[in-house]
Write a protein that binds this DNA or RNA. Structure first.
Lengths: 194, 194
DNA sequence: CCGCTGCGTTAGCGGGCGTTAACCGGCTAC
DNA sequence: GTAGCCGGTTAACGCCCGCTAACGCAGCGG
């Protein structure tokens, strides 16, 4: 159930992990089945023993990401503490994911367009639901905040928190985390009520 | 000299504009030369009358973007007002670019990896120089701010400001702009001095 | 009038890709 | 011990793509 990029237990997990790394670096169309096979130590068509095709592999990866995010978001939102605490939990959760699995973050918003229509709609739905969790919390914190404004603020925050793959993120992870965390919380707790 | 996606004057400009739109939607490898030709009304190999190849086209697009950003950044930084005003100008400039040319924003950080080595290094250099402008201003505003922290904050802010393509950005552009502008400025002016 | 240049066209080549086919060795169940 | 699945292999097919070749034709300078 551990979605984050970690050590691979079975072949399927290993393939998904390696594929995430390669897709993040070269893009979906920039990685061939042969490349991917070579990277896991088998070669070429062996992958078809584990996935029905290249797009299905991408689909499983992206759906897994969105489901993981949504599940984590729901979990944090369900604790029922005050809204400010919930927001902090959401930020920490999202940031942890972004720092732990930068490959998945990159692939997530780069190769969504390469999904077949059906899984794409599924991912979009999951993402939208995830955003709505944030919107609810934000509107609880800032009364009068319009839903559309909250949505834009949430997307902006994702951009902020997901920026670590771009910045190299060399400094010790802990420091990066607290910096971005504080930036996000500061920005989100001073939204205009209008 | 107008880099932003606008009406196309000559064929070259038209091709670049259309290519930006298609690349943003389908990714560099997801758009064929034939697709691109069809989208501008000519077909296929006619593009080779204007660009030496597909990668060169991408290179010109990405180099143009980074040069535009760097030039705009330098311009704002050169006015010599106080740092806070400079920062506001930088945010406004970057945000205006992101809102005016969402296609270029998307292509910029998605297809950098598809550039041939030499233009890629050039783009990276331009980007790094652009970031350093922000870093200087941030460190002027927040004394004691470490360069690496400023860099991370700058990248995070770019992620925030560049998030509009993801959020659909339906609300009237002006409102989106002021919302993201305020979020960015709030976050950047409360960075820890440590 | 002639030829050059600019900008198109269609035909075709070469290579790479996703995918399928056919085959095969090693576990494990019965 | 043998049947069968599981997860590999190599060979090959068909498609699509980037790119080149060869040609055509309007416009214009001499």
């Amino acid at each position: 159930m551990a979605v984050p990029t970690g050590a691979a237990t079975g072949r399927r997990e290993q393939i998904l992990t390696v594929a995430a790394r390669l897709f993040a670096k070269h893009g979906f169309h920039g990685v061939s089945i042969a490349d991917l096979g070579a990277a896991v130590g088998v070669s070429g068509p062996a992958l078809y023993r584990h996935f029905p095709g290249k797009e299905a592999l991408l689909a499983e990866m992206l759906v897994g990401i969105s489901e993981h995010l949504l599940a984590g978001g729901r979990e944090r939102a369900a604790t029922g503490g005050d809204a400010r605490a919930t927001l902090e939990a959401l930020v920490d959760f999202h940031l942890d994911f972004a720092l732990t699995s930068p490959d998945l973050i990159v692939v997530q918003d780069r190769d969504l367009a390469n999904l077949p229509p059906e899984p794409r709609r599924k991912v979009r739905l999951l993402q939208r639901t995830y955003v709505e969790i944030w919107v609810e919390v934000l509107r609880e914190i800032t009364p009068g905040l319009q839903p559309e404004a909250a949505r834009i603020a949430a997307h902006g925050t994702f951009g902020l928190l997901n920026s670590t793959p771009h910045s190299g993120a060399r400094g010790s992870t802990r420091e990066v985390a607290t910096l971005l965390r504080d930036m996000a919380l500061t920005a989100l707790t001073t939204l205009p009520a209008a």
